[in-house]
Structure formats: C-alpha cells, structure tokens
Write a protein that binds this DNA or RNA. Structure first.
Length: 225
DNA sequence: TGCACGATTCTCT
DNA sequence: GAGAATCGTGCAA
C-alpha cells in the first residue's frame, strides 16, 4: 500500500495536485465500507478526486476519479433497480455497500458502479464515468490499443475506463474495499464540482432531469457530450 | 424460446 | 452528426 502510494505520487508529479498528494501521502488509506454507507449522492460527489486502483496480472493501473453519476433506488426510473427490479444482473446492488456492480452493455462494453447508500438493502449505486490516469498509463494504452502517452481518450467514458483499468465481468460483485481493486482516499479536489443531468437516460421520464451527474470543472478527462 | 434493446464507443462522412 | 457494431439480459408469450 505504502509502496504503491509512492508510485502514485511519482506518477502524478506532473499533475498540478501532486504536491497536495505528496503532502497527504501518509494519510492515504483505502476507503472503508463505511465511506460507501453514506447517502448515495454524497458518495457520488465525495468520490471525485479519489484514486481508483486495480492491481491486475498485467500490472497496476490507477486513476483519479473525475466524473460520477448517482443512481438511486427503486424510485429512480433511470436505475437498473427501478421499480424494485431485482435480477441476476443487478443482484449485487441489493447487497453490501462498497462492492463493484459491473454490467455488460451494447454487446461490447462494461461499466463499473460502486454500490452505495445509507439504507441497507436499498439498491443504489454510483457509476464511475471517467478517471484521470495517474499510474500504469502504458498498460492502459495497450489495453485501449492506443499510442502510449497520457491521452484523454484513454479513460474519458465509463466503458473506456473499464477497458483501460482491465475491469470486466470478473470484477462484478468484488469488494472494492480491499485489493486487487479498491479506491484510495485523496485530498479534496481543488476544482469546482459541476452538477448536471445524467447521460443516456432519456427513457427515465422526469428522472432524466435530475442533476445527479457530477464532474470536476474543466478537467480534460471528463467524458464528452 | 424468441425478441427487443441498452447508464457506449468507434468509424465514416 | 449519423449510423453501425454486437450480445447479454429481461420480459413476454
């Protein structure tokens, strides 16, 4: 853990927040389950600036979370758990908080959610939509079949970040409070947080208008649209 | 059992 | 900006 924190610090030396990260290095801890047991919108905003890490057989990749979306429980018509729908696919949403909900979409891609919320058993989650790479960019580029180098196209979308981080169905239901996949605490972001509507939920009636998408203002790795 | 579709991305124009 | 890619999942019959 401590060793890897140093790797992160070195990797983001060029980042304008690097000095803050280094100063807070000693405080770097994997976020515990209690973090995810807060109100889901609180978790969605609090995750901004935190470091998603995946220690895989290919090597370790890590990225600073810069964009999230909150999906509330049965009342939220945009959520997979809308109307209390409980299926094989979304079963993990009904379990413990702080677990990965990875689903397959469009026959090609995966998306990573983290279960969260302050009501046990209520199926809520936070979709991770974009990260800013801080370690293992070469591995990410190889997985994304892109030229090496820090490139926004590496991770500026929910399925792009899954490809870059090596996240697939295998990580579904995994606890993200312990290696190999976890989220490290980090200093609160300096950037302003933008609140806007969620993407790709036009089917959700009035719920599509909720400002439950959050991202760091002017961050280059925020997904387009 | 069969069908419609999706919390997306990529390529082509 | 438009359309294609591609298949697991959910739901109706």
């Amino acid at each position: 853990m401590i060793v890897f924190s140093k790797i992160i610090a070195n990797a983001i030396k060029t980042n304008r927040q690097a000095y803050l990260v280094e100063r807070h290095l000693s405080k770097f801890m994997i976020l515990k389950r209690s973090f995810y047991e807060q109100e889901v919108i609180t978790v969605a905003t609090a995750l901004l600036g935190k470091i998603l890490v995946h220690e895989s057989v290919d090597g370790t990749t890590a990225g600073r979370i810069v964009e999230t979306e909150a999906y509330l429980g049965p009342e939220d018509e945009a959520a997979h758990s809308s109307g209390g729908r409980r299926t094989t696919r979304n079963e993990v949403m009904y379990g413990l908080k702080g677990h990965a909900y990875v689903y397959f979409i469009y026959g090609l891609y995966y998306c990573l959610n983290v279960t969260a919320g302050d009501v046990p058993g209520k199926p809520e989650a936070v979709l991770l939509r974009a990260i800013e790479p801080v370690a293992g960019e070469d591995i990410m580029a190889k997985r994304r079949q892109l030229a090496e180098g820090k490139n926004a196209n590496l991770t500026n979308g929910p399925s792009k970040l899954c490809m870059a981080m090596g996240i697939s169905k295998r990580q579904n239901k995994a606890a993200i409070t312990t290696p190999p996949i976890y989220i490290n605490d980090a200093p609160a972001p300096e950037e302003a947080i933008v609140e806007t509507t969620r993407i790709g939920v036009d089917y959700a009636g009035e719920w599509k208008n909720r400002n439950w998408r959050f991202y760091l203002k002017e961050n280059l790795f925020v997904s387009k649209k």
